[in-house]
Design a protein around this nucleic acid. Structure first.
Length: 541
DNA sequence: ATAGGGTTAG
């Protein structure tokens, strides 16, 4: 071996090589000293020459969770494989667990370790089930693994069923969920708080809020996690107001249980979807009172909530006062500026972020590109899009291509946008076609609009949801009412697109409207004002 | 000895 490799170079080697190099260059891995001694001072002896008993005697020292990337984990992993230590169920289980907690969370890594353990213990099974369940692509495998575990005669403990239930966030199968709920009685974990909380979430994930509510009401004890998971679940189901109501109920009913950062983040997430400035301000006050004001996660949600409530100045203030910011803080702020139409500021912030030495990720680029598209900054957008792969090594995904299509289309370069779709390396989705289609409507290009709708028809058989609404509006604009009727009739029967909703926060009361709604007590007055506004706008144009 | 709930994505 010539010279010394850097840690980054070692990382690229196969695991087996990494281990042998790591033996001679162990000092490169600061995490190694965490593993054995918990101190950062350099030891005379490479840590792995310490005999196995260290792993057994001081299992807590295997605090792999303190590594923050696979880079730290890899040499340790490599060493345990080469030395055969991973065959020890305890060591392997710790490593299994760390592959779930350390990004990039990849269940196939977890599984390859799991399959090499000679006698998996309960911890190994649990860790494996959790890894499968929490990744949507593999969540259905979690149930098979559970069945396998039972066949091997291993009894589940109070963690197994809740882990298994985590898979229902994506599989959403109420019948199977009920079955597992029933088996919690068989195994005697039905009154375990953790199990109950997870069962509750399962019912919400599977679209049975009534049973979930019933379970919640009947629970003798609830802890912060129970409350938090109800709040976040409600918000995920789109019931943001209800989520905030539960948050307030928690503060009244269970004043012993104080919200923590996770609770605050969930509540603020609900708040940002609601876009209510009043609620955001209340939560901000609450954040100050509870002393979580400096928490990065919480601040990021607060920035988002202010931005989505239209108060970009407050969002910026929260951002500016942060002493420590992570990538999400920048991304959220850029996104907020983009949403509020400050494209120029968003790009400026992006370049500031780069100057600060932060590396953008794929989501950051979605934020920046959508800023360009909303502000009509075509050239900047192209430049940034090209820099993704060239300067940052991030290959654009469907969403990024979608931003570019939108960028061209909004700016009126309809043909260029169409050509861009044709040159994409992947199949466009309905949303992408939809953004071009609606631009055709805005710029009055009926010909291209029909061409696109034919392509949508051929790929999805029938025009569904939002796309058909856009197309029918396009026909309506050019006075082709027969075509409008044709599309509307086609939409009947299959349920079509759920009706559009909008809401507004007036002095703390959220007023909600559905398309064509005449039920609001002030409907007449609202319509009168609306007509007046329409006339005023016509005058301006 | 040990595992739950949380942010950004037109």
């Amino acid at each position: 071996m010539r010279g010394r490799l850097s840690a980054a170079e070692i990382r690229l080697l196969p695991l087996r090589c990494q281990a042998s190099i790591a033996r001679s260059q162990w000092h490169l891995y600061s995490s190694a000293s965490i593993v054995i001694g918990g101190s950062d001072d350099h030891q005379q002896e490479p840590p792995w020459t310490a005999s196995n008993h260290l792993f057994h005697k001081h299992p807590r020292l295997l605090s792999l969770e303190r590594c923050n990337s696979l880079h730290c984990l890899n040499p340790i992993l490599a060493y345990t494989i080469v030395s055969g230590l991973f065959r020890n169920a305890f060591v392997a289980s710790r490593i299994l667990h760390s592959t779930i907690t350390i990004p990039p969370r990849n269940p196939s890594i977890t599984f390859s370790i799991f399959s090499q353990i000679s006698r998996p213990n309960l911890f190994s099974w649990n860790a494996m089930i959790k890894a499968l369940a929490s990744t949507s692509a593999s969540s259905h495998c979690a149930i098979s693994l559970f069945v396998e575990m039972r066949r091997k005669g291993v009894s589940p403990d109070k963690y197994t069923l809740p882990f298994l239930l985590m898979s229902f966030t994506s599989i959403k199968d109420l019948d199977k969920g009920r079955l597992i709920h029933a088996s919690s009685f068989v195994f005697g974990y039905e009154s375990n708080l953790f199990a109950q909380t997870r069962i509750l979430s399962m019912y919400m994930d599977c679209g049975d809020p009534v049973t979930a509510q019933q379970l919640f009401d009947e629970m003798p004890n609830r802890d912060v996690v129970t409350w938090t998971s109800v709040i976040s679940n409600l918000s995920r189901q789109g019931c943001h107001e209800q989520a905030l109501a539960v948050f307030n109920q928690m503060r009244v009913d269970d004043s012993v249980i104080r919200p923590n950062t996770a609770t605050m983040v969930s509540a603020m997430s609900a708040c940002s979807s609601l876009g209510s400035l009043n609620h955001t301000k209340n939560l901000h006050a609450c954040l100050v009172k509870t002393g979580f004001e400096d928490h990065v996660f919480a601040r990021n949600s607060l920035i988002d909530a202010y931005a989505k409530s239209g108060s970009i100045a407050c969002a910026h203030q929260v951002f500016d006062r942060m002493t420590e910011r992570d990538l999400q803080s920048w991304t959220t702020m850029i996104m907020g500026l983009a949403l509020n139409g400050n494209g120029q500021d968003a790009i400026f912030l992006f370049s500031k972020m780069l100057r600060d030495g932060l590396l953008p990720d794929s989501t950051t680029f979605i934020a920046v590109l959508s800023a360009c598209s909303h502000a009509g900054l075509v050239n900047e957008g192209i430049e940034i899009f090209e820099s993704m792969e060239g300067d940052f090594g991030i290959s654009p995904e469907l969403m990024h291509y979608g931003c570019m299509v939108d960028l061209f289309a909004r700016a009126g370069h309809l043909n260029r946008s169409y050509e861009f779709i044709s040159s994409m390396p992947m199949e466009p989705n309905l949303e992408i076609w939809g953004s071009l289609l609606s631009a055709c409507g805005v710029h009055g290009d009926l010909e291209l609009g029909e061409l696109i709708s034919r392509r949508i028809d051929s790929s999805t058989r029938q025009c569904r949801g939002g796309a058909s609404v856009i197309l029918s509006n396009l026909y309506a604009n050019s006075g082709q009412w027969q075509d409008v009727m044709l599309i509307r009739r086609g939409r009947r029967g299959d349920g079509g697109k759920p009706p559009g909703r909008s809401w507004i926060d007036v002095r703390g009361v959220v007023e909600e409207f559905v398309v064509g709604d005449r039920l609001h007590p002030l409907a007449k007055k609202i319509e009168w004002v609306l007509n007046g506004l329409g006339k005023a706008m016509e005058g301006v144009l």
